[in-house]
Design a protein around this nucleic acid. Structure first.
Length: 482
DNA sequence: AGCACA
C-alpha cells in the first residue's frame, strides 16, 4: 500500500523499456551501444557516457518485450553481453523513458555543423574543409559562415551514416597543420549534427559550394580575389559600388525599425529589401535598391545625416558587397518589399502551423550573408533549442522559402500568430515628432504623404536638397494592413 | 558494477 518513498528492491526491478547498462568501456559510443542492443528490438533512444566514470548508459526500446528479451537472454546466456571485450551488466532501469536525452546537435543527420575553433574565417579555405571531410565520403555541399561561436561550416553528406563516421573521427581533432597557414595555432573541430538535410547553396563561392551541381552559377561578388578593392587611377582604393547599401547607425538612442528605414530610404527610389542586424554591438542595416544609381544617390544624400534630431541615429553609408539580399519577407528585422502584397497577406492567413525552427542553422543565411556585414543574420542561427528562433516567418508557409526543412520532431513549438509588427510610439524620441518643425526638421516627410505610425524620422534627405528626379516615394507600405 | 535529466 505504500505509494511513495518505497525503495525499489535492489535486484527485482520491474521491467522497463529502458535498460541500464553498466561497466561499459569509457565513453562508449552510441554506435557500440546500438550494436549490442539492436538484435533485441528497435531502439528509440539512448543516453551514453552516464555517471562519473562515463561508463554507464541507458537504452530505450520501442517495446517493453524487446527490453525483456534482452535482459532474459543475457540472464541465461553463457556468454555475457560485451562491448570491446568488456562484460556489460544489464538491468531494467527504474525509469520508463529516457528524457532530455539529446540536444538537437546530437540527433544524427546527414548534415554536420562544424565549428572550427581558434581560426579566423580566412584561415581555413573551403577547399581544405572539403578535403578533410571528403575522407569519409562524397561531400555534397558546404556552407561556411561566421557567427559568435566562431568560424563554422555545414557539411552535407549523402546520409547520416557517412556524416556520423566523419563526426566520430573528427570531433575534437584538428585539421592537419600542413593544411593551415603558419600563424594558426591550434584548430579544433567541434562537430554536431545539423537539423538540416539539404543545404540550399545559391552560388559557388569561397563561402559555399555545391559539389553536386557544377552548373551552379559562380557568385561574382563572392569569389576571393574579385573582392579586392579596385584601385582607381589616382592609386587610391576605389569603392565598389552596389545597389545595396550598408548603413551603420551611430548613436542609436531610439529604435530604428524596418519601417523607419523604409521611409528614409524610399525617398530616393524603390526600396526592395531591408535587413537590420547587429554587428559588434552596433546596429547596421542593408538596404537594397533596384540599381546602383539609386543607391549612389541615396548614399550621397544620407551619409552622415541623422534619422532623428539631436544627433540621434546618425547614418553612415557604404556599399555592400551584396547585390541581392535574401531576407525573411516579413520579420521585425527584415522586409522584402518585392513580394506581392497578396501573397504576404495570404501568408499571414495561414495558421495552425507550428513555429518553424526558423533560422536554426539556417544554411541559407550562411552563404548569403557572408563577410563582416551579416554576423547579425548569422546570429539567428544561434545554437539553442529549435523553435526558439526568430519570429515565425509567414513566407515560409507561403512556399517562398525552400531552404528550411522543418524537423517535425521538436516538441514544444508553439505557434504565435503574426499579426504584423506593432510600432509603439516609444520608438519615437521625445521632442522629435515628425510633425514638429524645427531647425533640422522639415515637414517634407508629411508633405510627401508619409505618415508613419511609430514616429517617422525627422531626417530630411539631402539636408533639404532633394535628389534630382526623385518624386514622392509613394504611400507607406500597406503590407501589414495598417 | 548499481540509475541521467530538470
Amino acid at each position: 500500500m505504500s505509494t511513495s518513498g518505497t525503495p525499489q528492491f535492489r535486484y527485482t526491478q520491474t521491467p522497463s523499456k529502458v535498460l541500464h547498462l553498466r561497466n561499459l568501456p569509457w565513453e562508449c559510443a552510441e554506435e557500440e551501444l546500438i550494436e549490442l542492443c539492436k538484435p533485441f528490438g528497435k531502439i528509440v533512444n539512448t543516453k551514453c557516457n552516464v555517471g562519473a566514470n562515463r561508463n554507464q548508459a541507458f537504452v530505450e526500446f520501442a517495446d517493453l518485450n524487446q527490453a525483456i528479451n534482452m535482459v532474459s537472454y543475457y540472464a541465461s546466456s553463457s556468454e555475457p553481453a560485451q562491448v570491446r571485450g568488456k562484460t556489460v551488466y544489464i538491468q531494467y532501469s527504474n525509469r520508463h523513458e529516457i528524457v532530455n536525452n539529446k540536444s538537437p546537435g546530437d540527433v544524427p543527420g546527414n548534415v554536420l555543423l562544424v565549428t572550427i575553433e581558434g581560426v579566423e574565417a580566412g584561415d581555413v579555405s573551403i577547399d581544405v574543409i572539403h578535403l578533410v571531410f571528403s575522407a569519409f565520403g562524397f561531400v555534397h555541399k558546404i556552407a561556411t559562415f561566421e557567427k559568435a561561436a566562431g568560424f563554422q561550416a555545414l557539411i552535407q553528406f549523402n546520409d547520416a551514416e557517412t556524416a556520423s563516421s566523419a563526426r566520430n573521427a573528427l570531433d575534437g581533432r584538428s585539421i592537419p597543420r600542413y593544411l593551415l597557414p603558419e600563424h594558426v595555432g591550434s584548430c579544433h573541430l567541434r562537430i554536431s549534427y545539423s537539423a538540416h538535410t539539404d543545404l540550399n547553396i545559391k552560388f559557388q563561392s569561397h563561402r559555399s559550394r555545391d559539389y553536386t551541381n557544377p552548373y551552379l552559377p559562380v557568385n561574382p561578388t563572392a569569389i576571393e580575389g574579385i573582392m579586392q578593392p579596385a584601385v582607381g587611377p589616382d592609386g587610391k582604393k576605389k569603392e565598389l559600388e552596389s545597389n545595396v547599401l550598408l548603413a551603420s547607425i551611430e548613436n542609436m538612442q531610439y529604435a530604428v525599425t524596418v519601417d523607419v528605414l523604409h521611409t528614409v530610404f524610399s525617398a530616393f527610389g524603390t526600396v526592395q529589401k531591408i535587413a537590420i542586424f547587429e554587428k559588434n554591438g552596433q546596429t547596421q542595416a542593408l538596404v537594397q535598391y533596384p540599381d546602383v544609381n539609386t543607391a549612389a544617390v541615396a548614399r550621397e544624400a544620407l551619409e552622415g545625416h541623422c534619422i532623428y534630431d539631436g544627433g540621434y541615429c546618425k547614418l553612415h553609408l557604404s556599399y555592400s558587397r551584396h547585390t541581392d539580399l535574401n531576407v525573411k519577407a516579413f520579420s521585425d528585422k527584415s522586409r522584402d518589399y518585392t513580394i506581392p502584397e497578396a501573397s504576404l497577406l495570404a501568408a499571414q492567413q495561414v495558421s495552425g502551423y507550428p513555429a518553424a525552427p526558423a533560422a536554426w542553422q539556417n544554411p541559407q543565411a550562411a552563404p548569403m550573408y557572408h563577410g563582416n556585414e551579416f554576423s547579425g543574420a548569422a546570429s539567428m542561427q544561434a545554437q539553442g533549442p529549435p523553435g526558439q528562433g526568430p519570429s515565425w516567418d509567414p513566407a515560409m508557409q507561403a512556399g517562398r522559402s525552400t531552404f528550411v526543412s522543418v524537423p517535425s520532431t521538436f516538441p514544444g513549438q508553439t505557434f504565435h500568430a503574426s499579426s504584423g509588427p506593432v510600432y509603439s510610439s516609444a520608438a519615437m524620441p521625445p521632442g522629435s515628432s515628425p510633425l514638429q518643425t524645427g531647425p533640422t526638421t522639415s515637414s517634407s516627410m508629411a508633405s510627401r504623404g508619409i505618415s508613419q505610425p511609430g514616429g517617422p524620422p525627422n531626417l530630411r534627405p539631402g539636408g533639404g536638397a532633394s535628389p534630382p528626379g526623385v518624386g514622392p516615394p509613394g504611400a507607406s507600405p500597406s503590407y501589414y494592413g495598417q
